[in-house]
Simulated scan of single mutants.
Amino acid sequence: MSGSSSNAEQLLRHLEWTVLRRLDGLLQGDYRTLLRGAGMDLADLREYQHHDDVRHIDWNVTARLSQPHVRVFTEDREMSAWFLLDLSPSMDFGSGEQRKRQVSAGFVAVLARMLTRHGNRVGAMLYGSGVDTVIPARGGRQHVLQLLHTLQTRPEAAEADVSGPTRLHELLESAANLVRRRSTIFVLSDFISETGWERPLGLLARRHEVVAVRLLDPLELQLPDLGLIPIRDAETGEQLLVDTHDAGFRKRFARIAAQREADLRQSLVRAGVDALELSTDGDLVDALMRFTELRKRRSRLADGGSAGKLPTHLQQAA
């Protein structure tokens, strides 16, 4: 076994014994909570019955036949998941022990292994200065090792001479063309990109179950008082010397960062995707459990709210 392959094996084994074992105990086998809406195929249409979920009503057929009809689904035993990986220069940043790129790789390894050991397939698309690598969707632990090996041996953006602004829309548009079958798609990025990615993300979410996995570092939100320090823009290479001892400067930086956070979250809401935030100083299991609880709460609200009631004009027909 080569050194790089051995590193991939060691990392995956470490994650299996730490992160995956903890998740197994907390999720109690309900791993599909993380993948709501995936793995379902339309099997048939039939008349509505009182115990049916009204969210499955096919309104076009109902209007045509003047009788409520519901879509009947069957669980697709083999589900595909795709990881769209932003590996642009800003993903190499990290103010602590981990960089955003390392956190991203850990997330991919954990989710890919969780999926493949239940018989599902995973694939990946990698973006540097463009979409330069596509790993087809396959199953099995060996495939996860290959994916992890590719991420580990890929040079950092600076070493690969990747420069210029990130064009995240290129990655999203490429995925829309490549991934035809309904899948779960994880978009892993810090979303430091040229504008224009919002629309293709929304279009992707119309066909697939899309989760935006946003990578961030605490230093991108608030600057500590470190005196005079050089700051380099990873995307453009521009360098500035800033005085972090200036309280006014730190406040302005925090205010701009908070506005960018609010704008980004609003963009993800408008695109209709769920979002998971992973920080370089955070715990992966805690982040995944918070995300799982969010999905459970949304599911309970949908079941107990107005979405669970038959419209008045259809109650007599039912």
Rank of each mutant, 00 (worst) to 15 (best):
residue 232 R to E: 15
residue 67 Q to E: 12
residue 225 D to P: 09
residue 211 V to K: 05
residue 133 T to P: 01
residue 23 L to R: 08
residue 172 L to N: 08
residue 177 N to P: 00
residue 73 F to L: 11
residue 268 L to C: 03
residue 68 P to I: 10
residue 304 G to L: 15
residue 271 A to Q: 03
residue 88 S to C: 08
residue 110 V to L: 08
residue 24 D to H: 07
residue 293 E to C: 00
residue 16 E to K: 13
residue 82 W to N: 02
residue 142 Q to I: 03
residue 87 L to F: 00
residue 92 D to H: 10
residue 162 V to S: 01
residue 275 A to G: 01
residue 265 R to N: 11
residue 277 E to Q: 10
residue 318 A to H: 02
residue 246 D to V: 05
residue 136 P to V: 12
residue 76 D to F: 00
residue 140 G to W: 01
residue 33 T to L: 14
residue 94 G to Y: 15
residue 290 R to P: 00
residue 118 H to K: 11
residue 259 Q to A: 12
residue 216 L to E: 13
residue 123 G to C: 08
residue 297 R to I: 09
residue 219 L to D: 06
residue 174 S to P: 00
residue 275 A to S: 13
residue 4 S to D: 09
residue 39 G to W: 03
residue 56 H to Y: 08
residue 134 V to R: 05
residue 205 A to Y: 03
residue 203 L to M: 05
residue 18 T to Y: 10
residue 65 L to N: 04
residue 311 P to F: 11
residue 292 T to G: 03
residue 212 A to T: 04
residue 315 Q to F: 00
residue 195 T to Q: 13
residue 219 L to F: 11
residue 208 H to T: 06
residue 296 K to M: 06
residue 144 V to H: 05
residue 187 V to M: 04
residue 273 V to W: 02
residue 199 R to P: 00
residue 14 H to T: 14
residue 86 D to L: 03
residue 245 H to S: 15
residue 146 Q to W: 01
residue 272 G to Q: 07
residue 288 L to P: 01
residue 203 L to W: 00
residue 227 G to D: 11
residue 316 Q to E: 13
residue 167 R to P: 10
residue 304 G to T: 12
residue 157 A to L: 05
residue 254 A to Q: 15
residue 203 L to T: 04
residue 232 R to M: 09
residue 234 A to R: 12
residue 278 L to T: 02
residue 172 L to G: 08
residue 66 S to P: 00
residue 245 H to K: 09
residue 38 A to R: 11
residue 106 G to E: 14
residue 241 L to T: 14
residue 115 L to R: 09
residue 234 A to T: 02
residue 213 V to D: 07
residue 155 P to Q: 05
residue 261 E to H: 08
residue 27 L to V: 04
residue 260 R to W: 11
residue 304 G to F: 12
residue 129 S to W: 02
residue 63 A to L: 14
residue 219 L to G: 03
residue 35 L to N: 01
residue 248 G to E: 14
residue 84 L to M: 01
residue 22 R to E: 15
residue 212 A to P: 02
residue 93 F to A: 05
residue 33 T to V: 09
residue 172 L to E: 09
residue 290 R to C: 00
residue 256 I to M: 09
residue 272 G to M: 07
residue 66 S to M: 13
residue 179 V to G: 06
residue 25 G to M: 10
residue 29 G to S: 10
residue 186 F to P: 05
residue 243 D to V: 07
residue 170 E to T: 06
residue 112 A to S: 15
residue 298 R to H: 09
residue 211 V to D: 04
residue 131 V to P: 01
residue 102 Q to K: 04
residue 94 G to S: 14
residue 190 D to E: 13
residue 204 L to Y: 09
residue 237 G to E: 07
residue 92 D to K: 06
residue 170 E to N: 04
residue 253 F to A: 08
residue 250 R to Q: 11
residue 126 L to H: 02
residue 148 L to Q: 05
residue 66 S to G: 07
residue 193 S to R: 11
residue 10 Q to F: 07
residue 309 K to H: 13
residue 37 G to E: 03
residue 31 Y to H: 08
residue 178 L to H: 15
residue 223 L to F: 12
residue 184 T to M: 14
residue 72 V to S: 02
residue 8 A to N: 05
residue 230 P to I: 08
residue 229 I to A: 07
residue 127 Y to C: 01
residue 121 R to V: 07
residue 11 L to V: 11
residue 203 L to S: 02
residue 33 T to F: 00
residue 134 V to Q: 06
residue 130 G to E: 10
residue 163 S to P: 00
residue 128 G to F: 01
residue 305 G to D: 11
residue 140 G to L: 06
